[in-house]
């Protein structure tokens, strides 16, 4: 009990000291106004980063590549070290992995019972990408812009290009399900939902960007940088990582199931053929 009290006292003392130090040190002076910071967070007009010297890209692209590399590295490690040791009575890691795979697999099966194999794999990848990508902004990884300024890497999907890519790719996946199940009829069914890629893209973009803007706003003022980031930075990020993962995967699964459902005429034709045979 005494040890706990002593630890708490040390933490409090450190926090107070850091707060005083921050106030005394003061800000180097805003290099840009809050409006410019907000605009830059949205448009990345001045915050471009070089991609291996080949081209300049938004920092979201770098985040996306890092998230992909991280996910693939984790997957490779799990594949090499964990999966060969899987047992019929699972341990904690195995249980977690099975829950994750089972979650997206069941989502695919329940929403698209006719065709769910590819959908499950896509939902798993998209869900992992959105969740881990959104959480990656908590790390505050730094990069250097082409102008030599340091920049904190944002969540990949707070970049409009990443959000559009995710939305349109999901739409293409839905379209592929429609074509695979119903041919041209499936294309018609999918094209009927022409607003889907836009809504999916900008929903993701808006949700992730709003989180980014609020965080930017909070960190813009030194006085707001205490206690508040725990709520804004951690809890909100966790919450909207979960929500956005669920929303995009669920929407994709729903529309995929809808367009890949065999049309009644096709079913009738198949039945007739089977009866004739």
């Amino acid at each position: 009990m005494k040890q706990h009290k002593r630890g708490l006292a040390v933490c409090l003392a450190a926090a107070v000291l850091l707060f005083i130090a921050a106030l005394l040190a003061g800000s180097p002076g805003p290099s840009e106004s809050v409006q410019e910071a907000m605009r830059d967070a949205v448009l990345h007009g001045t915050g471009q980063v070089s991609l291996l010297g080949l081209m300049t890209v938004n920092p979201g692209m770098i985040s996306a590549l890092l998230v992909t590399a991280f996910l693939l590295l984790c997957a490779a490690l799990v594949r090499i070290f964990a999966i060969p040791r899987f047992q019929y009575r699972p341990g904690r890691l195995q249980l977690l992995l099975e829950e994750l795979v089972g979650l997206f697999d069941n989502m695919a099966k329940s929403n698209s019972p006719h065709r769910s194999r590819f959908l499950g794999a896509y939902l798993f990848a998209a869900g992992s990408y959105i969740f881990v990508g959104t959480l990656s902004e908590l790390l505050g990884l730094q990069a250097v812009t082409v102008h030599g300024h340091p920049i904190t890497l944002p969540a990949p999907l707070s970049d409009v290009n990443a959000a559009i890519a995710m939305g349109t790719l999901s739409y293409l996946v839905i379209l592929s399900g429609g074509i695979a199940s119903n041919g041209l009829g499936g294309v018609g069914k999918t094209l009927k939902e022409f607003s889907l890629p836009i809504s999916m893209s900008f929903r993701l973009f808006g949700a992730l960007l709003s989180g980014l803007l609020v965080t930017e706003l909070v960190y813009y003022y030194v006085a707001l940088s205490f206690v508040l980031p725990v709520v804004v930075g951690v809890l909100f990020t966790l919450l909207h990582a979960l929500i956005q993962t669920y929303v995009l995967t669920m929407l994709t699964a729903l529309y995929y199931g809808e367009v890949s459902e065999p049309s009644p005429q096709k079913g009738k034709k198949k039945k007739l053929r089977a009866e004739n045979a």
């Binding site: 992909t68 693939l72 594949r79 992995l97 794999a121 896509y122 990848a125 990443a162």
Partner: peptide, 18 residues
């Protein structure tokens, strides 16, 4: 580029984990 990234991620996660 994002599409390519997502395609690689989907394929990689499918074969390595899913």
């Amino acid at each position: 580029l994002h599409w390519m990234n997502l395609a690689i991620l989907t394929g990689g996660l499918y074969f390595l984990l899913y």
